[in-house]
Amino acid sequence: MSNTGTPLLELRGAGKRFGAIQALSGVDLVVRSGEVLALVGDNGAGKSTLIKCMAGSHPLDEGLLLVQGEPVHLRAPPDATRLGIETVYQDLALCDALDVVANLFLGRELLVPGAGRPLRMLDEVVMEQKAREVLAELAVTIPDLRAPVASLSGGQRQCIAVARAVMWNSRLVILDEPTAALGVAQAGQVLDLVRRLRARGLAVLIISHNLADVFAVADRIVVLRLGRKVADVDARAVSREDVVAAITGAAERA
């Protein structure tokens, strides 16, 4: 998709304050469909606060949040979900004891058709079928959909969490450190998945400390420093050193 037209999500002058601490101030941000946007910055730069504002966990104190050009006010995470914004946090929020199918449909279980709602059984056949379709579409390979997710590798678990986020008509997926704690091969699995999401026209916002991963997938890089946006650049147009300089503040002093 092109850079023209109404962006999927836009922040204008976003500010958030916790008591005496100004966590975010005057942040402008544009997220477009079919684009991978990386959000980088040092610890305490405001990355987590920013994604929580977009996920509905923190209401904004200042500024505007627009979804497809319409100003919206997110009071709680379900508000964001309704608008097609899904967040995959670092802890993944999977139920280890449940199998892959159960996790994908957690809280949205399908029941066999028929009357008598409270007594209706889970439609395991249809759920498994759909789970298989979704994972196949995203090219996520899981040997046994009926294995508890505790038995899967870190990369597979991350892919399941991402698949769950995108399988319900979401338009923007926010990934919080998706490759932290993963080995190289497993991180590669997750980055491949991110590229496939982009190919399907989703917007992906990825937070990462790992600049190699950022340069591997991101189209655009936004750098936060002390609650302010200090860079918003095309990933192909900058070097790793430029980004590090922006993160540490060396660029400002220079």
Binding site: D91, A93, C95, D96, A97, A102, L106, L119, R120, L122
Partner: peptide, 16 residues
Amino acid sequence: TRLGRHILAVGSNAEA
């Protein structure tokens, strides 16, 4: 049933 699935889910990871 959905109730049973939810009991297992809450017991496995209440936050999730």
